[in-house]
Nucleic acid binder design. Sequence first.
DNA 1: TTGATTTTGTGATAAAAGTCACATCAGGAA
DNA 2: TTCCTGATGTGACTTTTATCACAAAATCAA
Lengths: 189, 189
Amino acid sequence: MPHLLKDHIGVISPLSDEEFDYILSHFVFKKLKKHSFLVQEGNSVKYEYFVLKGCLKAYMSDSNTGKEFIYQFGVEDWWITDREAFFKQSAATINIDCLEDSEVLGITLENREKLVSEMRKYEHFVAVKANLGYISLQKRLQLMIMGSVKERYENFIQQYPHLINRIPKSFIASYLGVSRETLSRLYRS
Amino acid sequence: MPHLLKDHIGVISPLSDEEFDYILSHFVFKKLKKHSFLVQEGNSVKYEYFVLKGCLKAYMSDSNTGKEFIYQFGVEDWWITDREAFFKQSAATINIDCLEDSEVLGITLENREKLVSEMRKYEHFVAVKANLGYISLQKRLQLMIMGSVKERYENFIQQYPHLINRIPKSFIASYLGVSRETLSRLYRS
DNA sequence: TTGATTTTGTGATAAAAGTCACATCAGGAA
DNA sequence: TTCCTGATGTGACTTTTATCACAAAATCAA
């Protein structure tokens, strides 16, 4: 029985159907309308989410200027949450909302720790994921500091080819850390 | 018996002397002269290092412009390596060298995995560390995109108060992602 | 379909930061 | 001590990007 999450974990830790069913029983399914919030600043963050369908954005807004910076898009096969708030069980400092109708699977910190302690395979999956995430964040930081806007944009296209015409360019600009106008002027050449 | 690494791990996973001695036996001690390399671009990365003494910088250089970006300083109580190369056992894409005579403890990937699989406490320590590292990297990225140079500099002072007069300002500028001159003009006001 | 809102492109201008050049200063090595 | 190298501050100028303004195009909801 194929399942997006089963394959997702399976790439790192191959699972039997029984093992996966057991894992899946620790998740809750959520269906969300466009514009609804998955995580809201100030609230507690009970879940870490795996995206099955749709598109979400995680962003923080500057209290002074009111501008927002999108630090992550969540599409099929991606995880999304306010990591700090989730792990430290503190109040969210970011918002996550839906750019499209979306479907996600959520797992609580409690269930996550249960799975990690019960299943070596899940523990391994989670550890590998944490490493890969750290590495890709590091690359993004490097690109942000050393790369031109053009390089950043080209990199984005490679990473999210399907997002280019799926979401407003202003969101992409926010992710890249430039103004909407600068991004627009970039790809007329 | 106090030890910098014992206390460092102990904050997350308290250890008995026996447990710590066992952990320590998986590390090798290295003493390095100023200007020597701990990791060099193109080479393999056999160790992940915990800094006991001194100061190191991890940086990547742009192959086109030749400019370098320092993504991390390693001082007492910090870990440092080329994470990607270490975990994927691939060639290093960064350099790490000593700004001062330094002392580090290195652990191989093999020994790391051995400890993780043998000791729940070490596994827990490593997982928590990965999370905290991810979170702080995320904050740095946010500051890089949303914050002014001034804010970034002030944040740096908070995080590394002792580094300000210990290393050349040009390195701090590189870490902050600005030119040496801009940084210099910043704190005359 | 239609009217309203959002998104997008683009010009003009301002602000921020980079680059180049050079003088001074501090620290290390012989 | 003395010389030399590297670090630092600063002026002048250039480049990049942000900001503001507005019109055209696309999208959405009733």
